[in-house]
């Protein structure tokens, strides 16, 4: 039985989304699609000049996956908020695993809202992003 926003209880988990492995092509496409042309994500020469060994993925690419965890489950029309805190960089080649768990059900101006705790984790277990979604459970 699939949990819906109306029936979800604290502790319920949402379907996991995995994204990757994130290739250089993915980063080039994300730079173009998002308009974020920061060379640190797409230009190896620039990254090396900045003292890094390689380019790394846009944080917002992982944030987009947290958004998918929420909206694949609830539908985007129920999404009231999405937030994230970046805690580590995501290297090229990583696969990002994104999870959501119902953390709270509360009332906001008469509307039931679910607070969903979200995390993005890469292959070696490093958490790269944690955040939350607010979903209308009306």
């Amino acid at each position: 039985m699939t949990v819906t926003p109306q029936t979800a209880a604290v502790g319920d988990v949402l379907p996991v989304i995995t994204f990757g492995p994130i290739s250089r092509t993915t980063l080039a496409l994300y730079a173009g699609a998002s308009g974020d042309h920061n060379p640190i994500h797409i230009d190896l020469d620039f990254a090396k000049q900045a003292g890094l060994s390689d380019v790394f993925a846009h944080g917002m690419l992982s944030m987009a996956q947290l958004g998918r965890v929420a909206t694949d489950w609830s539908g985007i029309d129920r999404l009231r908020g999405l937030s994230g805190r970046f805690t580590a960089i995501t290297p090229v080649g990583a696969t990002v695993t994104c999870q959501g768990r119902i953390a709270e059900r509360f009332d906001q101006d008469g509307t039931p809202i679910l607070r969903v705790a979200l995390t993005a984790t890469i292959d070696d277990g490093t958490q790269t992003l944690r955040g939350e979604a607010l979903i209308s459970a009306d």
Partner: peptide, 16 residues
């Protein structure tokens, strides 16, 4: 840009 990091990002949605 040498020292800049993206710390947090948050959206409030009011309409599609």
């Amino acid at each position: 840009m040498r020292y800049l990091l993206h710390g947090t990002e948050a959206y409030d949605y009011h309409g599609a």
